[in-house]
Design a protein around this nucleic acid. Sequence first.
DNA 1: AGTATCGTCGTTTTT
DNA 2: CGACGATACT
Length: 767
Amino acid sequence: MSYLDELNKAQRDAVINIDGPIMVIAGAGSGKTRVLTYRIVHMIENKIDPFHILALTFTNKAAREMKDRISAKIGESEGRNIWMGTFHSVFARILRSEATLLGYPSNFTIYDSDDSKSLIKRIIKELNLDDKVYKPNLVLSRISSAKNNLISAANYVNNSVIQQEDSQSRKPELGRIFQNYEKRCFQAGAMDFDDLLYKTNILFRDHASVLLKYQDKFRYILVDEYQDTNFSQYLILKKLAARFENICVVGDDAQSIYSFRGANIQNILNFQKEYSDAKVYKLEQNYRSTQNIVNAANGLIANNQEQLKKDVWTENTVGEKIKIIKTLSDNEEGYEVANDIFYRRGNEQRPNSDFAILYRTNSQSRSIEEALRKKDIPYRIYGGLSFYHRKEIKDLLAYFRLAINPKDEQALKRVINYPKRGIGKTTLDKILLMASEREISVLEVVKSPLSYGVQLSSSVINKLNSFSELIDTYHNIMNNSDAFDVASKIASTSGVLKELYSDKSVEGVTRYDNIQELLSGIKEFAEQDTIEEGIDLPEGNDQRTLGVYMQDIALLTDTDKNKNETDVVSLMTIHASKGLEFPYVYIVGMEENLFPSQLSINSRTELEEERRLFYVALTRAETKATLSFSTTRYRWGNLTYAEPSRFLQELDPRFIDQPEEKKSKGSFNFDFESKAKTEGLSSKPNSLNLKKTQNLKRVTKSAPVNDNFESNDLSNLKKGDRVLHQRFGKGEVTKLEGNSPNIKAVVDFEEVGAKNLLLKFAKLQIL
DNA sequence: AGTATCGTCGTTTTT
DNA sequence: CGACGATACT
């Protein structure tokens, strides 16, 4: 069997030991994906039915990649029978088919984090709580971590430890918000990301026969990136694998970077305790990177206390040393990186796609992008604001969502007055409040507000009626027509398309194009005979309706949309780069308080996670890694000073080139001993450069505003009078019309031109 | 009801 | 800086 010959000893062991619990500790670049795919191929060669295999990954992309590789080996028809996908998408699929057991509709909506946040804001307001104390983000993460630890809202309020914590932090109402949130999600027929895991646990806990069914189905379970699983995921795996215990987890504790999402590194550290007969294999040979990179990364990660012992080594060439670039501003950093890419690309005849630029936070991409554009280097940003998160896309998707699941509160909120239908904030407020009070869906109240006791004028009621009729129409055509037909019908009859078409600004045109792109994506979906996303259609349902299309949309990210541009430089956060590799990698923004993040430097565990993050970044590089930092940087609009990251000092000098001082006349060296504390700006040759940037800082010009600005008696105002307006300044009255008290004046202001002002509102002083 | 402007606040990282 | 919500205005 030829494929086994392509593996080293450890890899082969991990592939051929199919039965029983197995943990594979896979160092960076050690052929982890290869092991996973070959293991599955080996299973199928050994007559294991693909229908019995479950493979879980963290991204759709990883799932698709693996599936492609397997299909290449064993043929597509067999390959597609494997359940392969992200935790979230696989369990969403199971939840849909078992939803009724939990009291949910099978077409439940998946709330993304925006939906969750907006609902939480709403609840905070309804409970009359201060959103400065109960910050939506904080509340959300508190709820999220509760769910990830399988704590329900009821458990939450009954748990004295938690309650004590909350009252100590002066947030005693968190539990009430949680209860409300849970209730509202349920009423809306919606699950958030964490629910997909949480509810799966509930399902397996309360319905033994269902658990048995899936235990029997998934006799062989494989898990990628096991170091990033949280408690909820761990428990699902434990339950599913309990019967056959054929579970193979693959991971690298050194690459655990998602603890902020509840990932628990203990899962991997405890695997052997969990399964006492577990076999453990370590993949330690790195096939990806040069010796310099591997050695530097090893030295770096050795600074962490908590880790499994492993010894990553490589037979690759020594390679170039790691380069460090120091610049004096973030723009200059972008310039230097772009420049470096430009010359390297030319000198070494490399395609753009050999280069990647990695950063800690999304906001850092801007200066880099600018520099690349100036040099005409094509690039693509992975992640960031996903296609599906653009406003216009979300608007149209909200119509789809509402048509599929009329109870979806967040979708309704989004579209009830978009495009404008004369249903305003006040009306909506009343309706939402009543729906919450009566514990029914919002659309029901919209349909007959009076019978639920909402006082509204008959004209508003008419508007509400025509809106709900519109949604009903959509709901009725949803499941019996072709996805594309339905989608385009909704886009045009809802008025969304018209609204965007009439906007001829650059952004407006882009938005219109985005809608077109979405629609053509749906067309493609409708015409396909196989799905190329992570998982296949549910059994027995191969109708390509819009409802099916929408099922996993909330779980897709931009990275999952295949783009045609291939020869481009890749820009992404380090998190997004996990699992990828590039010949040339640039890690920018190596500065204290940025990387490591300012929020992480106060605890050892968080700092260690940042270090692992740097480890991940560094080990993406095959041939050459280049690090850069800047002494100044714009942060939320202000120029701030920065010191080089402590991680730079943790790199063994043997593997790095001393930093290049760009554009300086050689007056200073990067001194690892004395750090950069003493680096004032005055003595630097480049201070001019800095001055320039500082001066660019916007001087906010605002008209002097007088708090006590009062109108004087305007009853005698006449044409030709000179008047003063608080904001518009001085002007001359050119026209007066209408009768008291609705007199309208046209005033020609010196600075802003003619304005129509109603005298009963406008504050004017006669000069 | 709808709009324009002001003020606030934040910022890791993502399914 | 830029998104978002509160507010002031029309």
